[in-house]
């Protein structure tokens, strides 16, 4: 049985219905402007347009996929194809999947560990996507003999290294582990290195932000 979302025909209506379907994890939802399209076994929802939802999906597409795809979606919406809702929905799903890959590659470089109590290296991340399972294998190969934790604060999950293999746990940390006494020395050295390596005559902050979006800066030692 499929769930059929009936929206009001506006682009906001479509976005808001799709946002609802995505967040409620509806399996293979369909979208239409007319309930006449419903099959015998379809469950029909009359979706009331919610502008906040529509905007939320809009911003998520912009952040996780890119702006170009918003344009493509809008062009598709304007077309007269009877399957346009399906096409848009598949497109967004594929985009989020692919967006994952982009972010996980970027995150391989942007994770920052602190050395904390008990000879452990601890990193906090807040990625847009649930990429922890995608990146933890890389760190197991990189530091097979160390104790490390990557903590996704947004989702309350963590990857830890157990004998060279990653393990994903769900955790609640009531406090951030205490820093080791030598931590400030090395993070201080890194900050100094970071500021000295830039060539002033070639300053290009736009390019810097393009590769390293500001939303990641919070957890970057060199940016704090």
């Amino acid at each position: 049985m499929n769930q059929l979302f009936v929206y009001d025909g506006t682009v906001e209506g479509l976005f808001s219905a799709m946002d609802h379907a995505l967040k409620s994890k509806t399996p293979s939802p369909r979208f239409t402007v007319s309930a006449d399209d419903a099959g015998l076994f379809d469950e029909v929802f009359y979706h009331e347009t919610d502008f906040i939802r529509a905007k939320d999906l809009y911003l998520r597409i912009e952040a996780k996929i890119n702006r170009e795809s918003l344009k493509n979606i809008f062009y598709c919406y304007l077309s007269c194809s009877p399957e346009k809702e399906q096409i848009i929905s598949d497109y967004i799903n594929a985009g989020f999947k692919y967006g994952n890959k982009l972010e996980s590659h970027r995150m391989l470089g942007l994770v920052r560990f602190l050395s904390v109590e008990d000879d452990t290296f601890y990193a906090e991340i807040e990625p847009d996507n649930d990429i922890l399972p995608l990146i933890s294998g890389h760190f197991s190969r990189r530091m097979p003999g160390e104790k490390w934790i990557i903590h996704d604060r947004k989702r309350g999950t963590a990857a830890i290294n157990r004998d060279g293999r990653p393990e994903i746990l769900s955790i609640e940390l009531d406090r951030i582990p205490d820093r080791d006494s030598c931590e400030d020395i090395y993070s201080g050295l890194w900050k100094n290195f970071y500021s000295s390596i830039a060539i002033k005559d070639r300053t290009n902050l736009r390019q810097q932000k393009q590769f390293m979006p500001v939303r990641y800066w919070k957890h970057l030692v060199e940016k704090n």
């Binding site: 470089g109 190969r141 530091m143 970071y194 830039a198 060539i199 070639r202 290009n204 590769f211 390293m212």
Partner: peptide
């Protein structure tokens, strides 16, 4: 400790926009 990845990884970007 460590390995070298075939495709390379950027860890940060300096104020001149170059990858570190």
């Amino acid at each position: 400790i460590g390995n070298a990845a075939k495709s390379g990884i950027c860890h940060s970007w300096a104020d001149d926009g170059r990858c570190i």
